[in-house]
């Protein structure tokens, strides 16, 4: 089954965030809400759209992720770079970068 996560940039500072379990937006992949089936998707989409309407986040969209060793990681390298920060600046990393990411 394809796992998905909502991501966006926060309006006030532009930082990459993910939709969390509690409906807030978090920079941490650990706290993000993983969407598996259709019902959960509908609800998450409504939350994301509301957040865009209220200018909390800009342009939310879904990304594909996999779960590996209890950690969530985006599949496309573009999204991995978004999640972990620019590879040329490991000092800006927003979260521990799993060795398997290839960044």
């Amino acid at each position: 089954m394809v796992l998905q996560v909502f991501t966006a940039n926060r309006v006030c500072d532009g930082i990459v965030v993910f939709l969390a379990e509690d409906g807030n937006w978090t920079t941490s992949l650990e706290e993000c809400r993983v969407i598996g089936d259709g019902g959960a998707l509908k609800q998450a989409m409504a939350t994301a759209e509301k957040a865009a309407e209220y200018a909390v986040v800009a342009d939310p969209y879904l990304i594909d992720v996999i779960e590996e060793n209890d950690a969530i990681r985006p599949i496309r390298y573009r999204e991995r770079i978004r999640a972990y920060g620019p590879p040329i600046h490991p000092d800006f990393a927003k979260q521990a970068i799993p060795a398997a990411t290839g960044l």
Partner: peptide, 17 residues
């Protein structure tokens, strides 16, 4: 907002503005 911020050189990029 996008065209307005772009006219002032402000992009929304991969990680931030």
């Amino acid at each position: 907002f996008k065209p307005l911020r772009l006219m002032n050189g402000l992009y929304l990029q991969l990680h931030a503005y």
